[in-house]
């Protein structure tokens, strides 16, 4: 079908290796670097990065339409809304 981008094997392989390397980094930083509270933040930053890599090259939103990107982004935005407003309530109770 014309107009649809075929992701080559090489790109898929590089994506996979990147993800494995990032997983190793996640484990190493969590187990051998003690940052206290900040450990989770770091792990989340790496996880978000990994998820973005999967979304862009495996799914592959990089070659997709803006409509499909918007669908994905808006669901994330609304989840954040649920979290932020519920948290505001739970942490401002007397």
């Amino acid at each position: 079908m014309s107009g649809h981008h075929v992701v080559p094997f090489k790109t898929n392989l590089i994506t996979f290796i990147t993800l494995v390397v990032l997983t190793v980094i996640t484990v190493l930083t969590a187990k051998y670097v003690d940052l206290g509270e900040f450990n989770l933040t770091l792990a989340m930053v790496i996880a978000t990065f990994k998820a973005t890599v999967v979304a862009l090259w495996f799914m592959p939103l990089k070659y997709d339409t803006w409509m499909n990107r918007t669908i994905m982004l808006s669901s994330i935005a609304f989840v954040s809304l649920l979290f932020v407003i519920s948290a505001v309530d739970l942490f401002t109770r007397a």
């Binding site: 407003i85 309530d89 401002t92």
Partner: peptide
């Protein structure tokens, strides 16, 4: 409509800050 759900919960023990928002 996604920003207003807490107005169902004004007397449920929700915090005054959330109630005001």
């Amino acid at each position: 409509s996604f920003l207003v759900w807490g107005h169902h919960m004004f007397v449920s023990g929700q915090s005054p800050v959330a109630g005001t928002i």
